[in-house]
Structure formats: structure tokens, C-alpha cells
Design a protein around this nucleic acid. Structure first.
Lengths: 140, 140
DNA sequence: TTACACCCTGTACTTAGGTATAGAGTCAAG
DNA sequence: CTTGACTCTATACCTAAGTACAGGGTGTAA
């Protein structure tokens, strides 16, 4: 960050933990707002952009696509969207999250069982426990 | 499923909720074991394959890559891996999962705040709450 | 005033994860 | 004994999400 309080593209990339080109890609696709430019055309990102980039990466690791992440980032009362409408979209995202947490919990339980009992002290076995991980409710 | 207890490729696809070609793709890449074939070369999947396909899709939604999913499915005591080694790998997967859950929880909290306070009855605001979602510990 | 480390745009390439299509065989029902 | 709904392989194509140049400008320190 220089004395003007802005950071360069490569600095944002470094601090956000992504490739330089990825920053420009995010800008092109609207995930990052277009930053102001210096006289010679250099991008001037605000230091807060770092948090945004990290948020994007983290959300991706949680299985959200860039499109979904854009929706998440758009969740605010902008001109043209009512509070009720924003609330509805947010609640649907919350449900997505709850679903993910539930599946992760089931997965963890299976893994804990694997380490605890199956790999405890008993005799070696095949223990295909993950495949019995069935939240599936057999909808046919 | 026919009287032999096997299901066809297209049936597996249907019941697993994926495209027909995806089944063959999973087989090629080793996510599904090569099934036995009928006299005329038709694949004969066991009904349990359905669970496996669904597990793969679910794990993908949770942000695991097919490579990671393959590792998850390989977590068992196979000849050539010791119990201690399997346990170590499983524990590392459990940590992945705990990390994901933690991030999801933080994300949910931010969304709940968004719906509760920001979009409650107060005046409309810009409320960029998601960007202040910072678990980041500013490692520089 | 030039060397070097930056920055820009535009375009092309890559990888993961599928999907589609062509061309040919299988099999049960009419 | 043919028609229609399946199956197979091989190959080509597609989208998402980057990533890598090429060709050129900028800025500063020696």
C-alpha cells in the first residue's frame, strides 16, 4: 500500500492469495468492482478488496460457484430491490448453508467412526464405511 | 434392476441423478470400479453403486474435487496401507471438514445478521455485511 | 538515459468436469 | 424378421475458472 492508501493489482493478488491474472479476471466478470485508475491507467484497489478476494476463495472451497458468490456479494439493499426481496434471497442462501453443514456433519461422523472403531485395535478389515454414508432417503 | 440384481448404466445414471455419460466418465477416471459385464458387453452395476454416485455428487457440492473424493473413497485398509496410515489420512480429512463447517457457520452468521437487523424494520441501507466477514487473521 | 521492475490490453492456452454425437451391436415385442 | 429402445466405443465438443504470453507503456534509481 502506498501513501495514497491504494494497493496495486499484484499486491492485491499477493495478499488475496491468488494469481495476478485472476484479479483481472474477477474484475472482468464483475466479482470485483472496477477500481479507479491512476493517471497512467494503473488500477488502484482499496485495501478492503483483499477481504473480498479472500471471501471469494473461501466460498469457492465451500462449493459455491462464482455465479453463486456474485449473488452472495449482491445481497444488500440496492436501488431496485426491496428489503423483503433481499431477505428472501438471504434466507434461501442460509438454507443452502444449513444443507451443506448437515452433509459435512454426516461425512465427519462416518470418518470419525472409521478412525475410532474400524482402525482402532481390532483386526484389519475392509471397512467401506463411507459408502454406507447414506442420507439418501431413497427417493425413487 | 432386473432379476439378476444388477442395474444398467442408464438406470444408475437416473437413480444417481447424473448424466449417462457421467457414469462412464466416473468409471474411466476410477471413481467407480469397473463393473462386471454381461455376455454382450453391457455393464452390470450393483445397486449399491447408486449410493456411491450420490456420495460423489454430494461431496462435490461441498467443495471437494474429484481427486479429493477419490481419496475419501480410498480411505479403508487396503493391502499395502497400514491402519495407522489410514487413520492419519482420515484425520486430515476430518480437519478439512471442520474447517469448512467453521467457515460456513461464519457465513451463515453474517447472513442471519443481514436478514435480522439490516433488513428488519430500520431504514434501507447499503449494509455490505458479507464483506466484513473476516476470519482472516490478517497474516501478512 | 538506460536498465529494471513494474503496469496495461488483448488474445490464446489450460485444466477439471463433464456432454454430445457418430457408428455399430443387442434384444424383446409385434 | 423387423422396429424401437436400449447398449457399446471412440472421439469431439463444451463450460467454468483460471493462467500465460506478446507487445507495449511507466517510473525510478544508478
Amino acid at each position: 500500500m502506498n501513501k495514497t492508501g491504494h494497493i496495486s493489482t499484484s499486491e492485491l493478488a499477493k495478499r488475496g492469495g491468488v494469481n495476478l491474472q485472476t484479479i483481472r479476471y474477477y474484475e472482468r466478470t464483475g466479482l470485483l468492482p472496477k477500481p479507479p485508475r491512476s493517471g497512467s491507467g494503473y488500477r488502484q484497489f482499496s485495501p478492503e478488496s483483499v477481504r473480498r478476494v479472500r471471501f471469494i476463495k473461501r466460498a469457492q472451497e465451500l462449493g459455491f460457484s462464482l455465479k453463486e458468490i456474485k449473488e452472495l456479494l449482491a445481497l444488500r439493499i440496492a436501488p431496485g430491490s426491496t428489503r423483503a426481496e433481499v431477505r428472501k434471497r438471504a434466507e434461501s442462501k442460509i438454507q443452502d448453508i444449513d444443507g451443506k453443514v448437515e452433509h459435512l456433519r454426516a461425512m465427519k461422523k462416518a470418518l470419525v467412526q472409521l478412525t475410532d472403531s474400524c482402525c482402532g485395535n481390532g483386526p484389519a478389515s475392509n471397512c467401506p464405511i463411507l459408502e454406507s454414508l447414506s442420507l439418501d432417503k431413497e427417493r425413487k
